[in-house]
Design a protein around this nucleic acid. Structure first.
Lengths: 239, 239
DNA sequence: TTGACATGGATTGTTAACAATCGTTGGATT
DNA sequence: AATCCAACGATTGTTAACAATCCATGTCAA
């Protein structure tokens, strides 16, 4: 048994060139999704270098990628900050979601494959579990990711990317304008959407997504915003 | 009339940090839009440095940004290439457009502001002019940009970004799978869409966009693809 | 006490040299 | 003659030092 002679390149780089790089982006991504990174938080290069144990170049590339998706804002000679959407931006994001997601779910209700239902059902179960055990950050993240799962269910990579970006930015918006005590997604509306899909009722599914998004939007106070600078070490250090 | 006392910083960097940088991205963007840059064309760093008279860093940042939008593909240790979508990717892009654009235009037909009609009408006039004078590249670009204009008409920056990306990738797809002799957008369907909006007929507008996109899609041969490596100098040098 | 101003430290932006990888060319061997 | 192998050239990836900018501190004057 000769050892395999050609293990050419381990894996073709699909999107970001480096595992390290993807990891940095994903960590910050998740931290924003879970609202552990507040808008306007400064993302210092040197700190990120320390935290991730990487050279400055990697960090800068990661920040540039994040900025191209509206998660991070780069200010000339001042550094990178977690994006801080204003009301106009918030409106744009919600209107984009209201435009895209209802037809998307409508389509899902028409396709309605078995494993799709299985997948969404499992996700909702995880949401419930997180809610039961009071894991706030986990719950917030799962709540947002549900909408990404819907996009994934279409098998359309392009839509997944779009939805992921919109959902993440929504997380920032809810963190900024959301009423504190309130969950970002009203509790069991996800289940209602899944039910409509299961019953092959595209009309109702579409309507439920629409009102779901409007509920989230109505939970926002579009005037006051709370600023609380966070500590980077605690936020990005662990998983 | 005192001169304005504070011209603080000339302009806050909105997206890319530098004018030079935006320019590089835009040039390549346009070249792809006009199908002057064929898929799989290698984008050598040193050449781009020469062409734009910029340091390697700027070029690399531009390429990274383009790669994050699916216009360019970065291969480890091999360099940057104009993206070469496969059939799956092409399907995803078209399905995403079919999902997004019809409701978008429907909404436009409901709003129907006067200056909106003016703007679209002017754009179509430019398309006709380009078609009349046989300016192929100009015509291709305008033809694609029409769809971006529709998004701009909503005043939603987020949607504009999404549409711009989708349209550009469509340009790559048409270049790859399109039948050569055929224009990318069937001739006067844009006018038909505008008319439906003008008549406040959301149903018809939506339907026309849908069939318009399907016409474009049906003009593709999803089996054979033509590879023609281009010369960078001629493509990116001028305007 | 308050304001403006200058200086120092820290952080970001840029450049250039260095290291690593890949493709190719040339030669040697079968 | 064809194939494999090795060394070279070219291109990309990385690092580190340098330059420029901003922010804060502290000083001086009103």
């Amino acid at each position: 048994m000769a050892p395999p002679k050609q293990a050419r390149h381990a894996q073709e780089t699909s999107f970001s060139s480096d595992p390290d790089e993807k990891l940095i982006v994903e960590r910050i991504y998740n931290a924003v999704m879970e609202q552990r990174l507040a808008p306007n938080t400064k993302l210092s290069e040197s700190r990120l270098c320390d935290i991730f144990g990487v050279g400055r170049m990697r960090v800068r590339r990661a920040l540039l990628l994040l900025s191209s998706q509206g998660i991070v804002e780069l200010k000339s000679n001042r550094g990178a900050f977690v994006a801080c959407p204003d009301q106009d931006e918030a409106n744009d994001v919600f209107e984009a979601r209201l435009l895209i997601e209802p037809p998307l779910v409508r389509q899902l209700a028409l396709l309605r494959s078995a494993d799709l239902l299985e997948l969404l059902s499992a996700h909702i179960a995880r949401e419930d579990a997180a809610r039961a055990t009071q894991e706030r950050t986990e719950m917030i993240r799962l709540s947002g990711e549900f909408h990404v799962r819907l996009a994934e269910a279409t098998g359309n990579e392009v839509l997944v990317r779009i939805l992921r970006e919109l959902v993440t930015r929504t997380s920032l918006i809810v963190g900024l304008f959301g009423v504190s005590g309130q969950s970002s997604c009203p509790d069991d509306e996800h289940m209602g959407i899944l039910e409509a899909i299961r019953q092959r009722d595209p009309e109702r599914a579409e309507q439920r997504v629409k009102s779901h998004l409007e509920h989230i939007r109505s939970g926002l106070a579009m005037d006051g915003r709370k600023d609380r600078p966070d500590d980077l070490y605690n936020v990005l250090g662990e998983v």
